[in-house]
Simulated assay, not measured.
Amino acid sequence: MDDNDADRYLRQANACLEEAQRATRVADKEAWLKLSEEWMAWRRKRSGKALMSIETVKDAAGSHCSGDH
């Protein structure tokens, strides 16, 4: 994988995190967080690097998906 792919996957993951932060419904927030984790997993798989876990992604989003409706 070249750096452009890694950057693209990271940009996609970050865009999903931003959407999760804006989401007002729990289901939407969880869906965006899952998509972000999938982008990061794809990046890890392609690069072989240990990157963010779902807990790190959730912390970065500033939510543990509770209490929002």
Rank of each mutant, 00 (worst) to 15 (best):
Q12D: 08
Q21N: 11
A50I: 11
D7K: 15
Y9S: 05
L17Q: 03
A50F: 05
T24A: 12
N4I: 14
C65W: 06
R8T: 14
C16D: 09
K45F: 03
G67Y: 12
A27G: 04
M52C: 00
E19H: 04
E37A: 01
G48S: 01
M52S: 02
H69R: 14
D59N: 11
Q21C: 07
H64T: 12
D3K: 14
L35P: 00
A50E: 14
A41V: 13
D3V: 13
A41E: 14
T56S: 10
R22S: 06
S66I: 15
N14E: 14
C65G: 06
G62T: 15
K58M: 14
L35E: 09
W39L: 00
K34Q: 12
W42Q: 07
D28L: 05
K29M: 13
D59V: 12
C16Q: 10
E37Q: 05
K34R: 13
R25Y: 04
E18G: 02
V26T: 14
E38N: 10
D28N: 08
E18Q: 08
S47H: 04
A6M: 14
R22K: 11
C16N: 10
A6W: 07
C65Q: 11
H64Y: 14
R11I: 10
G62R: 12
D68W: 13
R22C: 04
R44S: 13
A27D: 10
V57M: 07
N14T: 14
W32C: 03
S53G: 07
D7E: 15
I54G: 01
K45C: 00
